[in-house]
Design a protein around this nucleic acid. Structure first.
Lengths: 197, 197
DNA sequence: GTAGATATTGTACTTAAGGGCAGTGTGGTT
DNA sequence: AACCACACTGCCCTTAAGTACAATATCTAC
């Protein structure tokens, strides 16, 4: 599946092609048509200067594909808006080839990409609004070793496997688990997992 | 400059080494010493389970190097806290090799790395606008009776209890579960639950 | 009407899970 | 020194979980 380059500027398209490899890029300039024919999970680099990209088309694009907003004049406020509307990334349209590859590669794996300072802004400004209100109170009553067992449990591992990983006897794993069961008032690993989820 | 692996768990260090290349990794387990001798821009993978990592050491680490917080049990609220304290990234300690390379490569270029859903949370949309990958697709391949068993399982019930509830023999419950295990390619009820979550 | 999916159950077996009891060792507190 | 929390382990026992090998019954589709 080629990467779609959504821009009117031939120069921009060219610099993207050069960075990402000419072969698997496909230039498109008509937003409206694209929104209909977009495949699921399709990767799109979208030049924000493109006429008609904002209106009704952007959310439609983002529903279908993984769209990276490419700004010629990046600004944290602007970036936040596009990300809120479903963008999978926000970057400088004239990023270096290295960075561009990085971004595409990141988004391709299903993650989102956002610059360092924008992230800092997000953490600083919106962070306080999060209901992180120490719902993690249980952590305090769990020892370091028990926490490791929990982590393993959350990966669906059996006692024997956990023992191997932590390099202790299976009996010890059971001991840690028993302790956890008591602390959380549950009967078995399944209920513990549900309690923690 | 090698990547520093800051963890007590040999198993974890090993999985990181395997992903990132044995040659340019360096295992360290003492936070206090490290904080002093850290080079500028040094890349560090920091296991959050490590004792003493939170206290006064974390900010010092982050001032000197690029520190990625590795959680054995990731949670958006937790992630936010570490990022606010200067982390260059927040990821699952047991990420796949591919993803780990991705993360390291991203942070190495000077960007920050943050998972998709955490970013969505930061953007204040809680993922509602992000195309989420067919979350309930599994329902189509599950029979009505199997779905009832799943519902009971999600309440942490044992086979005997499920049998009572559905008014069938325990053996039948086991049959339904076995069928589910095959359909989802898992080995037991715990993994099934994790698969469904 | 025969094939296939679904639901049901039985017997018997192996392995995993969990706990009881008992003990060792370490590190910090009073 | 005495205490305590934590980590670790062994032996033994009970019960739960999961599977192999069958078998019967219903319902829908071709």
């Amino acid at each position: 599946m080629p990467i779609l380059l959504l821009t009117l500027s031939e120069a921009l398209a060219d610099s993207w092609r050069t960075a990402l490899g000419r072969a698997h890029c496909w230039r498109v300039a008509d937003v409206a048509t694209l929104a209909d024919s977009l495949q699921d999970g399709q990767l799109v680099l979208a030049d924000l200067v493109l006429p008609g990209i904002e209106a009704a088309n952007w959310p439609a694009l983002c529903r279908q594909g993984r769209v990276i907003a490419m700004s010629s004049d990046p600004d944290n406020g602007e970036g936040l808006r596009w990300l809120q509307q479903g963008a999978a990334g926000y970057a400088h349209a004239y990023s270096t080839a290295d960075l561009l590859q990085q971004i595409v590669s990141t988004v391709k794996t299903g993650s989102s990409w956002v610059g360092r300072d924008l992230l800092a802004l997000l953490c600083g400004q919106l962070g306080s609004k999060l209901p992180d209100s120490g719902q993690e109170a249980w952590r305090s009553q769990v020892t370091a070793r028990e926490a490791e067992v929990i982590a393993a449990l959350k990966r669906g591992m059996a006692n024997k496997e956990i023992a191997r990983e932590l390099d202790i006897a299976e009996r010890t794993v059971k001991a840690h688990l028993s302790s956890l069961f008591h602390k959380f008032g549950v009967d078995d690993r399944l209920q513990l997992l549900l309690k923690l989820a």
